[in-house]
């Protein structure tokens, strides 16, 4: 008798919608993420003040450099993320690098941990190749900066003695870019792209001790932690998660179309000719684009926008599931209350 009652209870529609099995929930999630991504759907997102602040700061450095060609300012990038956060941080890094190379702003990059080095090296050279940037003149990768705090402090005077060589073993005093861009006085901005707590160290050392402006690019999970600093103006803007990356990506793509033209493919195809190829050292990148690389470079230009379409699907799916769960919960409670009332009435 009791078993029958229990079975009847389980058969009720509101109990059933409350207990969808995990594999089906996971399968649904998989589909709503993978379908928009494979369909190459892109979402145009609205732009927030915090992202605009980072973008405008870079634009101001560009304007300053145009007006002061002998006293140029560079940007120091803390490549502070590892493999686990690449889906969110890669689009941020790509957009930021593209913006800096487009505006011809000298870039100095370092990474605080061993596993980040390979990522930083590949991402930086990948984008440098798209803009014909010269290693040692337009950009440099310093390699490992561990413990990062010591390097942050040393950059107040000169970062060269603590490194000795760059990532590729070149003597720091042989790299032309480092003659000028070796301390905070000549960096207009520090941008830390991080999935960890590293931006707080940048704030404590570079910003608090040496008054260096610091912008942050971070994962959505970490963003809540950095909002107080961004709101108080300690961080010069923030690129938060995939949404922030998509905003920055949109802005940079608009700029690129304005400077290079609407169709990027022919630009990439004709970037390296037989004549100019010899100017580039093959150690950093191969100065030649094949069709596969052009296709990847084009996809990279809206990587965050594509990710946003998957994120849209995932968010809506979670909301629908929560609503379904709550409808079931509401009717279950109602039925329980009714039963209790009936029992009391009897």
């Amino acid at each position: 008798m009791a078993e029958n009652k229990e079975q009847k209870q389980k058969d009720k529609w509101y109990v059933q919608i409350m207990s969808i099995k995990k594999p089906y929930v996971y399968l649904g999630m998989f589909l709503v993420v993978i379908i928009p991504f494979l369909a190459n759907l892109k979402i145009k997102t609205y732009e927030t003040d915090l992202v605009k602040e980072v973008y405008q700061k870079v634009e101001k450095i560009h304007e300053y450099n145009l007006n002061h060609p002998d006293k140029k300012k560079g940007v120091l990038i803390g490549f502070d993320y590892g493999p686990s956060t690449t889906p969110e941080c890669d689009p941020i890094a790509y957009s930021v690098f593209r913006h800096l190379f487009l505006r011809d702003i000298p870039i100095v990059v370092w990474a605080p941990y061993g596993p980040y080095l390979e990522l930083a090296d590949s991402r930086l050279n990948r984008i440098a190749k798209e803009y014909k940037a010269n290693y040692g003149k337009d950009y440099v990768f310093m390699g490992l900066a561990y413990p990062a705090t010591a390097y942050m402090v040393s950059t107040s005077s000169d970062l060269r003695p603590v490194f000795n060589t760059d990532y590729y073993g070149n003597d720091v005093y042989d790299l032309k870019i480092l003659d000028r861009f070796n301390n905070y006085d000549n960096f207009g901005l520090v941008i830390t792209i991080s999935g960890t707590a590293m931006p707080e160290y940048w704030l404590r050392y570079a910003n608090s001790l040496y008054n260096q402006e610091v912008s942050v690019g971070t994962t959505a999970v970490n963003a809540a932690k950095f909002y107080p600093y961004a709101n108080s103006g300690q961080f010069t803007g923030m690129i938060a998660g995939l949404k922030g990356a998509a905003e920055y990506e949109q802005k940079v793509t608009r700029l690129e179309k304005e400077l290079i033209g609407k169709d990027i493919k022919p630009y990439l195809r004709n970037l390296y000719t037989e004549k100019n190829r010899s100017k580039f050292n093959k150690e950093y990148f191969n100065p030649k684009f094949n069709e596969g690389e052009i296709r990847t470079a084009m996809l990279r230009r809206h990587q965050a926008g594509r990710g946003m379409s998957s994120q849209f699907g995932a968010h809506i799916y979670v909301i629908i599931l929560i609503i379904i769960g709550n409808i079931g919960y509401f009717f279950k409670r109602k039925a329980e209350k009714d039963r209790t009332k009936r029992r009391r009435g009897v």
Binding site: V25, A314, V318, N326
Partner: peptide
């Protein structure tokens, strides 16, 4: 995480 969070939100996020 996305999968676990979805399942957890569906089961635990209730208007009580």
């Amino acid at each position: 995480l996305a999968f676990y969070i979805t399942s957890a939100a569906y089961r635990a996020f209730k208007v009580s």
